[in-house]
């Protein structure tokens, strides 16, 4: 099970707590694969983390993996074992903006 931490506004939208777990059957496990399952399990999140059509990350959200910024690495990069095993969460973080 992959653990995903969401920003507060998306937790409220999806009606979940700070962290959700998703069962990702795809191999290898990528951010895109995790988001695919996340959006399936929580349809309210469709279009809010990545664009509907292009599947690109929304500009004001970022992905952190094992304390590294993976926002520009690409959705299809293979996630490390610590994320795949659920030892560490995939962080979806809202950019600090708005003054």
């Amino acid at each position: 099970m992959v653990r995903v931490e969401l920003p507060a506004h998306l937790c409220r939208l999806a009606g979940v707590g700070h962290e959700v777990t998703v069962a990702v059957d795809a191999s290898p496990v990528t951010i895109a694969a995790v988001l695919e399952v996340l959006e399936h399990d929580y349809p309210a999140l469709e279009g809010t983390i990545r664009e509907h059509e292009t599947k690109q990350r929304r500009a004001w959200l970022r992905f952190f993996v094992c304390e590294e910024d993976w926002s520009h690495i690409g959705m299809d990069a293979v996630l490390p074992p610590a994320i795949v095993s659920g030892k560490q969460p995939l962080l979806v973080i809202g950019a600090i903006a708005g003054g």
Partner: peptide, 8 residues
């Protein structure tokens, strides 16, 4: 809507 997560 929001700048972070678009339209709902």
């Amino acid at each position: 809507s929001s700048g972070w997560s678009g339209q709902v």
